[in-house]
Simulated scan of single mutants.
Amino acid sequence: MPVYFYWGEDQFRLEQAVKNLRQQVVDPLWESFNFEKFAGEDAEAVQAALAQVMTPPFGGGDRLVWLVNTTLGQRCNAELLADLELTLPQIPPNCHLLLTSTQKPDSRSKAVKLLQQHGNIQEFSPIAAWKTAEIEQQIREAAQRYQLHLPPEAIQLLAEAVGNDSRQLHNELEKLALFAGDRPLTAEDITTLVHATQQSSLTLASTLLRGDTATALSQLEDLLLQNEPPLRLLATLTKQFRTWLWVKLLSHERDNQRIAKLAEVGNPKRVYFLQKEVNAVALPSLQACLQILLATEYQLKLGAEPVATLRQGMIQLSLACSRRSWGDRSGGADN
Score class of each variant (00 low, 15 high):
Y146P: 00
A159H: 06
N120W: 10
I127H: 10
L115Q: 09
L150F: 01
E141K: 11
A128Y: 15
V112Q: 07
A142S: 12
V112E: 04
A129H: 13
E141R: 11
V162C: 09
L115I: 13
R140N: 07
R145I: 00
I127M: 11
Q116T: 04
K113W: 01
A142R: 08
R145N: 05
L158N: 05
L150K: 01
A143S: 05
E136P: 03
A142M: 02
Q137Y: 07
I155L: 10
A154N: 05
E136Q: 14
Q147F: 09
E123V: 13
V112I: 05
I139K: 04
P151D: 01
S125R: 13
I135P: 03
Q137L: 13
Y146V: 00
L157I: 02
Y146C: 04
P152W: 01
K110F: 01
E134H: 12
S125L: 12
I139S: 04
A128M: 14
Q147L: 08
Q147D: 06
A154P: 07
P126S: 03
L148Q: 00
Q122G: 08
A143L: 02
Y146Q: 06
I135F: 05
A128S: 15
E123A: 15
L115N: 08
K131E: 15
Q137D: 13
A161S: 13
I155S: 03
P151H: 01
Y146A: 02
A142L: 02
P126W: 01
L158E: 07
S125Q: 14
A159Q: 07
K113G: 10
T132A: 15
P126C: 03
V112D: 06
Q116R: 08
E141S: 10
A159F: 10
H118S: 05
E141V: 12
I155N: 03
Q144H: 07
E123C: 14
E134T: 14
A159Y: 09
Q144M: 07
H118Q: 07
L115M: 12
K113C: 01
H118V: 06
I139H: 04
A142F: 04
H149A: 11
H118F: 13
I121W: 06
Q138T: 13
E123Q: 14
L158K: 06
L114M: 05
T132L: 15
L158V: 08
E134K: 15
Q156S: 14
S125F: 08
I127F: 11
A161V: 12
A159D: 08
W130L: 12
L114W: 03
L150I: 02
R145H: 05
V162Y: 09
E123G: 09
K113P: 00
A133Q: 15
E153W: 00
I139E: 04
I127L: 15
E141A: 12
E160T: 13
